[in-house]
Structures are given as C-alpha cells and as structure tokens.
C-alpha cells in the first residue's frame, strides 16, 4: 500500500512534467497534441547518446554520483537533452503544425499530431533499435525503509523526485514572480488581448514549445532511469499525460502538476485491487471519471 503510494508519487512527478508542456500547448494552440509524449522519447534517447559520448571522451565523468546509479555524464546529458528536445519541438512546429495552423485547418492539427507521433516513434525505432536500453547496467540496490510493511526506495528515485520538484519550483517562480511568466500566463488566458498589450504571439509560442519540450525531456530521462528506455515510451505515456491535463483542467499549469500526481498515484494504487495487466487502462478510467464529475477539471475554466 505505502509502497504503491511512493511509486505513484514518483510516477506522478514524471507525468506532471510531461503534462505541463502539453497543457500549455493545448491551451494556446487549441489542439490535443498526441505527439507530445514522443518528446519524452526524444529526450530519453538524446540523453542516452550524450551520456555515451561524454563517458567516452572523459571517462572520469562516467563515475556514479554518490549512492546513485546516475553518472556525472548522464547528469550533464539531461540538460543537453532538455535543450535539444525543446529545439525539436520548435522544429516540428515550424515544419508541420505552424503551417497547418496558418492554413486555417485547426482541427486537422490533431490528425497531424498523430502522424508526427507515428513518424517520430518509428524513426527512433529505426535509429536505436526496438530493444530495450538502460542508462547503466549496474544494479543499484534499493534501500529498505521498513520491513513491515516492506518499503523499498532506490536512491535514484529520490533524486528524480527532488529534480522534478526543483524544475516545477523554478517554473512556479518564473510564472508567479517575473514579467516573463506573466506574459506566458497572459497568452494562455487570452491570446488576442495579449497581442494588444504588445506581446508577439509567435515568440511566445516558440518559448512555450521550448519549455514544454525541455520538461518533457527531463521527464523522459527520469522515466528511463526508473524503468527502461524503449521506443514506445511515448505510446505508453501519452494517455496518462493526457489524463493529467484533463484532471487538472486544460490550460492550467498548476492543474497539470496536481493532475500528474493524482494520475500517478491513482494508477499505482489501482494495482492494489487490479491485476497489473490492466494498468494501461487506468488513465482512461480517470478521464471518464473526471468528465462525469467535473468536465473542466480541477482548475480549468469552461470554454468552447
């Protein structure tokens, strides 16, 4: 029970980071982006590449940090992956979404996002192979927090949670304390008025993709660190991340954070009563429950 709760919190922090970017884009550009979860894959694989590169160039970096399995090389790679994934998101927007948007086919963007998801996911399969990869082959033993009930926590998991909370805290600071953050919130609330107050929409859209992509990349690396890396990370996480945005209310960044934790915890707690094979369906049940009880989510506003 408590073990499930702890695991849920951890998964939740990863989902939250994925959901933040998704909710911003969905709100600003008015489409459900089914390719967002592929950004997690891009991030996870980008970190894998640079981890290998750094370790090869500077073997000193290939040593683990303290009790973690994480090496300095991978730690550095996280930030590079965040940057590269942000740029990939901007590139995809420029090549595909922006052009469809400008042609005035708003609804087609959902189709296009599915198409992009297929392309990205399968290109990754082609480039890196279908088999599962790991950042490290070393086995890191979990720390026993208690024997009865048995509660195990890996040092990596603590690191992931702390990092995720740190990124969210930074984002919170930016949104609540800086005029740059107000700009993002203003565009999210009312793009036309934002333009009237002198905000250039296209710039903010680019920045949103970068932030969303960077957070997704971090989420992807953390997911890979906790589980494993494979080309279907995006396919497996797209529904839980959507569930997180719907729970929180589309457009609400804080809702996405809370929604991520709720979905993560609920999906893990559900394993107490359900066989584990059913866990991919749990996010859908959560979506249904939210649509029944509170269609606009916890923090969402009614809109058409």
């Amino acid at each position: 029970m408590i073990q499930h709760l702890l695991d849920g919190i951890l998964v939740g922090s990863i989902l939250s980071m994925g959901a933040i970017g998704l909710t911003m884009v969905m709100h600003m550009l008015r489409f459900a982006n089914f390719s967002h979860a592929e950004l997690l894959s891009i991030g996870a694989y980008a970190a894998l590449v640079f981890d290998g590169l750094f370790s090869a160039i500077l073997p000193a970096l290939a040593t683990s940090i303290g009790p973690l399995s994480l090496t300095w090389a991978l730690f550095l790679s996280i930030f590079i992956a965040m940057g590269l994934t942000g740029l990939s998101a901007v590139l995809i927007d420029m090549l595909v979404f922006k052009r469809i948007r400008e042609n005035g086919h708003e609804l087609s963007m959902v189709f296009a996002s599915f198409g992009m998801a297929l392309i990205v996911r399968n290109l990754i399969s082609l480039g890196f192979g279908l088999k599962t990869r790991l950042y490290t082959e070393d086995i890191v033993f979990a720390v026993r927090l208690s024997d009865d009930p048995l509660i195990l926590v890996k040092p990596d998991q603590v690191f992931v949670l702390i990092c995720a909370l740190f990124f969210m805290a930074v984002l919170h600071f930016v949104l609540s304390r800086t005029t740059f953050g107000y700009t993002l919130r203003a565009v999210a609330e009312n793009p036309t008025l934002a333009q009237v107050t002198g905000i250039r929409l296209s710039t903010v859209i680019v920045i949103t993709w970068i932030i969303g992509g960077a957070l997704a990349a971090a989420a992807g690396v953390f997911y890979g660190l906790n589980n494993q890396i494979n080309p279907v990370i995006g396919r497996d996480l797209v529904l839980p991340i959507f569930a997180a945005t719907i729970v929180g209310g589309i457009g609400s960044i804080y809702g996405a954070v809370l929604g991520g934790f709720i979905v993560g915890i609920a999906a893990n707690m559900a394993l107490v009563i359900l066989p584990s094979g059913y866990s991919p369906a749990v996010p859908f049940l959560i979506i249904l429950a939210v649509l029944l009880v509170r269609p606009n989510g916890l923090f969402g506003e009614e809109r058409t």
Binding site: L107, V110, L239, F242, I246, I250, P280, A281, L285
Partner: peptide, 18 residues
C-alpha cells in the same frame, strides 16, 4: 471541446484493447 472527444476516444481504444 473537440479535443476532449479526441482524447476520450483514443482512451477507449487503449482501454478496449487492454
């Protein structure tokens, strides 16, 4: 909004298959 339908129907497919 139309994106809810997109997400919900996608979810149905995942859940049904599962």
């Amino acid at each position: 909004r139309h994106d809810y339908l997109a997400i919900a129907t996608f979810g149905v497919a995942v859940a049904f298959e599962n």
